[in-house]
Nucleic acid binder design. Sequence first.
DNA 1: TAGTGTGAACAGATTCACAGCG
DNA 2: CGCTGTGAATCTGTTCACACTA
Lengths: 222, 222
Amino acid sequence: MVQGSREPELPVKRLPVYLRVLDELIEKGIDLTDSKRLSKETGFTAELIRKDLSSFGSFGARGRGYYTETLRQDIIKVIGLDKYTNVVTVGAGYLGTALTRFNITKNPYIKMVAAFDIDPDRIGEKIIDVDILHISELKDIVARHKVDVAILTVSSDRAQQVFNDIIESGIRVIYNFVPVRLDITEGVHVLSTDLSLELQSLKYFATQLVQTSEKTSNLKIK
Amino acid sequence: MVQGSREPELPVKRLPVYLRVLDELIEKGIDLTDSKRLSKETGFTAELIRKDLSSFGSFGARGRGYYTETLRQDIIKVIGLDKYTNVVTVGAGYLGTALTRFNITKNPYIKMVAAFDIDPDRIGEKIIDVDILHISELKDIVARHKVDVAILTVSSDRAQQVFNDIIESGIRVIYNFVPVRLDITEGVHVLSTDLSLELQSLKYFATQLVQTSEKTSNLKIK
DNA sequence: TAGTGTGAACAGATTCACAGCG
DNA sequence: CGCTGTGAATCTGTTCACACTA
């Protein structure tokens, strides 16, 4: 589903989780923590956390734990969030608009630069304070701001074309929500989330759980 | 991130992909296909597809391939999509509304039953043809319809409380978009997608790709 | 002594190689 | 003969066990 560089995927996806927890701990004035506490807050095992952190070159203090502020800085540096991450949304329909809004209001470290569409009624409007522009302006915006990631939420039939346009504009990382298989160029990283298929696959677990609960009779909710 | 039953996660997530491709092939009047064709359409390797299908008890015809219609029926049966999958959305904000709309219009096999909120301004409105109800009616709706999955998109501070309410209503599978760690009961399956953190982690790959392209000099887009 | 860092064992998922069968 | 089905090898990721050190 994901193509791109040969880096370890899962450890990288856990780093932002650590970052969020550290932000919360620092907010509370806690400046020393340990892998056990981080485990409690994140749900990952303490060993895994230690392995993750050490593999990324961040080191704690033996016998003491981790200093929240230095660990936070290290993680920010490894992910690359020390500079603002500039993101555009391509496709300002319901989903694209909701995602843009979500990231403007709820995502520290992320700067939404612009949204793009082809619908004349949408162009010129704003999502909170972010302009909706015609897609022909994408190249220009990318040239002016260093755009790191594009969120792709156009219709299925236009997805490949728009994807190509995004790559041509110079963006190398795409977060794709369109339920199609994109033909991906070398040197490009795509994370695709297919919300319809995820939901369908959850039915499997629903069926499974009904069957097991029928067998083991009534589970009581604590 | 995902807790719940001990089933193989990834093969299950691929089944809906096969299903979609089979729907397309059947639409085109193709009634015999093979793992190579399915590989081309899905992006998974042919071996993996054969392993998946055989492990779920669906068998092809040696020397010929797979009959699209019987394979489709088998997959639908395994996932449990032979009955409609009833889904509710809890939290009818921008994201909840977009997801509801998306599944109403773009998701075959899924039936959106209702959306819930606490905002008096939202209650009584509709998302296309789906009613937005007060959350106090959740229990009643679940009792009347067999609801398989809840999409959770409330605010972070209310998430755990609403999650508990959902479990108490009898729903056992939750697709969670709220960026918090939920305290999950035994016998419950939760798929959490943290859209903010996913986006943050993509910055890592953006940085990585910029560095490698600088080293290997200019990549040309075909 | 408390908590990190890490080699070794383990587990899950994928690919390889090829046997099996219509 | 062609394409499936599958054991073996491999790869990736996680857990275990414990040496290490501030």
